[in-house]
Amino acid sequence: MSDDLATRLREQGLRLTPQRELILRAVEELRHATPDEVLAHVRGQVSSVNASTVYRTLEVLEELGLVRHTHLSDRAPTYHSTLEHEHVHVVCRRCRRVRSYDPDLVAPVVAALAADGFAMDVGHLAIFGECADCGHPPEPT
């Protein structure tokens, strides 16, 4: 991914720094991570990286289309790589486990909104509830 990162940065008049590479790699490895989680991961490799560098870099990476964010809690946004397929986030309110589902899960909603002239951003969608592991039995089909 560093070649793509370097190319996209150069197109914007920016340069590829070791911190930017580390932060992008951390997002890819963690799959769904808040800026604080990215910071902790990166600091495990380079202790001199600070929080403001992580926040600024995540903004740049999102502007470049290399990461996206969604809100999986009432706290900081959660970032994930755009290398992953587009997906819907399902979050258990008890255990906080995040599961990813194919966008076909919400295809009828997407179609209904499109018919009304609204283009839905499925990758930003987070559905909250309670998973079966936390005591909520699955609904009968």
Rank of each mutant, 00 (worst) to 15 (best):
S2G: 01
S2Y: 10
S2H: 07
D4Q: 14
L5G: 08
A6S: 13
T7A: 13
T7C: 04
R8N: 12
L9Q: 00
E11C: 04
E11D: 06
G13P: 07
L14D: 12
R15A: 07
R15N: 02
L16K: 13
L16R: 07
P18R: 14
I23H: 01
L24W: 02
L24D: 02
R25W: 07
V27L: 04
L30H: 12
R31K: 12
R31C: 04
A33I: 03
P35N: 06
P35Y: 13
D36W: 06
D36A: 13
D36M: 03
V38Q: 09
L39F: 00
V42I: 04
R43W: 05
V46L: 02
S47K: 02
S48L: 15
S48Q: 12
V49D: 00
V49E: 00
Y55D: 11
Y55S: 02
R56D: 10
R56Q: 15
T57V: 07
V60L: 13
V60K: 11
V60F: 02
L61P: 03
E62T: 05
E63R: 10
L64M: 07
G65Q: 08
R68P: 06
T70V: 09
H71V: 04
H71C: 01
L72E: 12
D74N: 11
R75C: 09
H80Y: 10
T82V: 11
H85S: 07
E86C: 02
H87R: 12
V88Y: 00
H89D: 01
H89E: 00
V91M: 01
R96G: 08
R96E: 14
V98D: 09
R99L: 08
Y101W: 05
Y101A: 06
P103K: 10
D104Q: 03
L105R: 11
A107T: 13
P108D: 05
V109R: 04
V110D: 12
V110Q: 15
V110T: 15
A111K: 09
L113F: 09
A114K: 15
A115D: 08
A115K: 15
D116L: 12
G117S: 03
F118M: 05
M120V: 14
D121F: 05
D121W: 10
D121A: 09
G123N: 15
L125C: 08
A126P: 10
I127Y: 00
G129A: 01
E130Y: 06
E130C: 10
E130F: 04
A132R: 15
C134H: 05
C134G: 05
H136I: 04
P138G: 11
E139T: 05
E139S: 09
P140D: 15
T141M: 04
